[in-house]
Design a protein around this nucleic acid. Structure first.
Length: 507
RNA sequence: GCCGCGUUCGUCUAAGGGCUAGGACACCUCCCUUUCACGGAGGCGAUACGGGUUCGAAUCCCGUACGCGGUACCA
């Protein structure tokens, strides 16, 4: 028996990939890589009515951005393809038939209208959601309640039908979850789930079991919302391939929003992204914002997601993907849901921008500057600028206001802080300073600072009272790196020009 | 309703029977800095409740409350 770890991420292409989804991939990926195993991407598109064009491509793009590239996928192929369930359609029916033949499943001919009628008839306050269980089964139209010749007649006539699992009465099914330990279910409380739909497509229940078996999946992680249907999957494994061959399960806790389960609405309502990357619904044209476009580094996004429901037991919070792979342990994943906090998410990004080299930041920042129409030809200059302002940037977009003055002259001046103490003497000082700087285009920062100080002394003005005005003249406001560093990068001529322009504006 | 899962500072979490329950985000104070940040030092702040078991419980057991999930020919 092979001990090679194989995990899979199986999203449905219905649009976007929210935090919970990306975290599920992440944990799959980390587990696989930690154990030197394989990571498989399988697309669950058995519900064609919910399929959204472009959603599958969006998933690939998102995974690539995060650095979570699968070993096998519909794009790349692999030994267990196809990896798109719609392309595997013919593979599922034989398993359903096998279950029927063994008496573990049955044909049901009930129309949607008949099911609706049953539910509204049986619905009471004490039972708001009637199940298709042992009792109900007997009064519906299926191969267990109908006489055999009638069943055969319906089948021969091509009557639309589904295959349902026959839940055994009064059995206890136990799942050993890697995170939660033993979880038990009474089969009497689980209804006869549909396995194969009338269109011949499998439901999720049949598809996961068959595909996980055929693709030799050894460990399966999914959201906590799947826990209630675990007994169906366990029974299917027992009937079809043997419980011993079943992957080990782990049900991940949910990611919560400020009020309950995190939803797309939360993003719009509280002003933070909930998707990894921007997603525009092709039908409604509705845009849901992504972390990428909001200015997050993928390193930070992956880091914050990993820590939302897991940690290694130490105080360390900043991890690269490589470190996460090394430290990850599924047993350390929490049981309880975690509320997403955007403030903390931004802290992670700020930390990653600070610890990233200017060279690492260059592509993203360059693209940003290009979109502003700034001159981005000189990479060395850009890297210097990035190194100077990165600790002031929480989101990538912050590089625009923080570094814009290196590319454009200020269009307004935040002079409120010094205008009250402005004097003709100070104005005269700056006139002279502009002349001096203008004549010496290239001197060292320290020399320029020394020249500034001695000029101030000569004018009998405290340098401290002149430094802030100089800063505002050069950058427009009270922010930015050391002022003489800025002057040095701008050059003597440009510095002089900015002083003169500001003087004219201030008056 | 029924079934299942969960519950440590406002939030993310550490501590898996034993020191004053630790760290981070946010918030507040101070220091550094003649800008904004970075950085540094402090402060505020939690074991949902009630019973057990034990010399000793955040930790183990039972109950209650609250929260969440599921209950589709959706995943």
């Amino acid at each position: 028996m092979s001990s090679k770890v194989r995990v899979r991420f199986a999203p449905s292409p219905t649009g976007g990939l929210h935090l919970g989804g990306v975290r599920t991939v992440l944990y799959n990926y980390l587990f696989a890589r930690h154990h030197g195993g394989e990571f498989v991407l399988r697309i669950e598109d058995t519900d064609q009515s919910r399929y959204v064009p472009g959603a599958e491509e969006y998933i690939y793009e998102t995974l690539e951005w995060c650095g979570l590239v699968p070993d096998e996928s519909p794009l790349k192929g692999g030994p267990y393809g196809p990896y798109r369930q719609s392309e595997r359609k013919p593979m599922y029916r034989p398993y359903a038939e096998r279950l029927v033949a063994a008496g573990q499943a049955y044909y049901a001919f009930d129309t949607p209208e008949e099911l609706d009628a049953m539910r509204s008839e049986l619905r009471t306050d004490a039972n708001p959601n009637p199940q298709y269980d042992g009792q109900v089964r007997a009064r519906m139209r299926n191969s267990l309640s109908l006489p055999p010749d009638e069943v055969q007649r319906l089948l021969d006539a091509g009557t639309p039908h589904v295959v349902r699992i026959k839940m055994p009465p009064g059995e206890t099914v136990t799942l050993t979850d890697m995170i939660r330990g033993d979880v038990s279910f009474d089969t009497s409380t689980v209804d006869d789930k549909v396995l194969l739909k009338a269109d011949g497509m499998p439901t999720y229940h049949l598809a996961v079991v068959v595909d996980d078996h055929l693709m030799k999946i050894t460990h399966a992680f999914r959201g906590e919302e799947w826990l209630p249907s675990a007994p169906v999957h366990i029974l299917l494994w027992r009937y079809l391939f043997g419980e011993d061959a079943m992957p080990q399960w782990a049900h991940l806790p949910l990611i919560l929003g400020p009020s309950g389960k995190l939803s797309k609405r939360d993003g719009a309502r509280y002003g933070f992204p909930v998707f990894a990357a921007n997603w525009t619904d092709p039908k409604s044209n509705e845009l849901t914002e992504g972390f990428r476009e909001r200015g997050f580094l993928p390193e930070a996004f992956v880091n914050l997601l990993a820590l939302l429901g897991w940690n290694d037991g130490t105080d360390q919070e900043l991890f690269s993907l490589e470190e996460l792979v090394e430290r990850f342990s599924i047993q350390k994943v929490h049981k309880g849901g975690a509320q997403f906090n955007f403030e903390k998410a931004q802290w992670f990004n700020h930390e990653w921008i600070k610890r990233s080299s200017p060279a690492r930041l260059l592509p993203e920042v360059k693209a940003l500057f290009q979109s502003k129409g700034w001159d981005t030809k000189d990479d060395a200059f850009l890297e210097t600028v990035i190194g100077l302002v990165k600790e002031r940037c929480t989101l990538l977009a912050d590089f625009v206001p923080q570094a814009g003055f290196f590319f454009e002259q200020p269009s307004s001046y935040d002079s409120a802080s010094f205008i009250a103490k402005w004097t003709p003497e100070k104005a005269a000082f700056f006139e002279r300073l502009a002349d001096t700087f203008g004549q010496e285009p290239d001197v060292a920062d320290a020399d320029r600072e020394a020249a500034f100080k001695s000029a101030a002394e000569a004018a009998a003005i405290k340098p401290g009272e002149l430094q802030l005005p100089l800063r505002v003249m050069l950058v427009g406001g009270k922010f930015g790196p050391p002022v003489f560093t800025i002057a040095g990068l701008l050059g003597g001529a440009e510095t002089a020009a900015r002083i003169r322009k500001a003087l004219a504006a201030i008056g």
